[in-house]
């Protein structure tokens, strides 16, 4: 069976700075993969290169289909959905509108849209309570829930998340990551980027360690016992 997503020799640069050197990476169907790496490692660039928010070289295939040249919105239509670093909410819009825009691809299939609302509200009851609140006025944790909820409205086949726990209280971060674990157990493929997250390690099956734009290691998550095990990959 082909991988859910397979990345071969993907690279990207800003001007002369090679932020991502040719990187290989894959996520199997239903797999939870975490990418760890220090500040400036190129984690964000990796996800942005996959979703074509930055120009990149290399080959990306999705369920065996070559998707290298596709633009961001076409990738989204295929089910490759990313939760951006900093959440990327439509801040002046309400929670409800943000979620509705998540389901943009469903067009006017009202029943399906409502089904997804139920799913998201089931996972994040807080969003139902705050449906008419303006997104920017919510707490950090609530905003992150909304970002994940909005991504789920899009019906992802592969969900990519860029440091969803950044800036959140540990308890809130754990809540959100637990939800990701639940989604994964229901079969959703997840590619999670984090800087240092014991929780993310617990959820993941495989881990890539990224540093200075290159993959330094690919490990089964259960082989990483502590953060110290990772540190040695960070500096080379």
């Amino acid at each position: 069976m082909p991988s859910l997503i397979e990345v071969e020799g993907l690279s990207a640069s800003y001007g002369h700075v090679a932020a991502l050197k040719p990187v290989d990476l894959r996520v199997e169907e239903g797999e939870f993969v975490t990418v760890l790496g220090p500040n400036g490692a190129g984690k964000t660039t990796l996800l942005r290169a996959i979703s074509r928010l930055v120009a990149s070289q290399g080959r990306v295939s999705f369920k065996g289909q070559n998707i290298s040249g596709l633009s961001t919105h076409r990738l989204a239509k295929l089910g490759i959905i990313m939760v951006q670093e900093g959440r990327g909410l439509f801040g002046e819009m309400t929670v409800y509108e943000n979620l509705l825009l998540g389901a943009y691809n469903l067009g006017s299939e009202i029943e399906k849209v409502e089904g997804r609302f139920e799913q998201v509200f089931g996972l994040f009851p807080r969003l139902r309570e705050r449906a008419s609140q303006v997104a920017a006025s919510m707490s950090g944790g609530e905003q992150q829930m909304l970002a994940v909820g909005r991504a789920l409205m899009a019906g992802p086949k592969l969900l990519m998340l860029d440091e969803p726990s950044l800036g959140l209280a540990p308890k809130v971060a754990a809540e959100i990551l637990d939800t990701l674990g639940e989604l994964n157990r229901n079969g959703l493929g997840i590619l999670l980027v984090e800087q240092k997250a014991p929780l993310a390690l617990k959820l993941a099956r495989r881990v890539y360690v990224l540093s200075s734009g290159s993959v330094r290691a690919e490990l089964p998550a259960n082989e990483i016992k502590s953060h110290h095990d990772l540190a040695r990959y960070y500096f080379h």
Binding site: T72, H73, A76, I81, L89, E92, M93, Y104
Partner: peptide, 24 residues
């Protein structure tokens, strides 16, 4: 309307809009 909302979405965050499948 769906399209009108999508236009507003583009005005607030074009990248996020594209990531949801809106043809910016």
């Amino acid at each position: 309307t769906r399209v009108g909302r999508a236009l507003r979405a583009c005005s607030q965050n074009r990248e996020a809009a594209a990531l949801l499948g809106i043809p910016v």
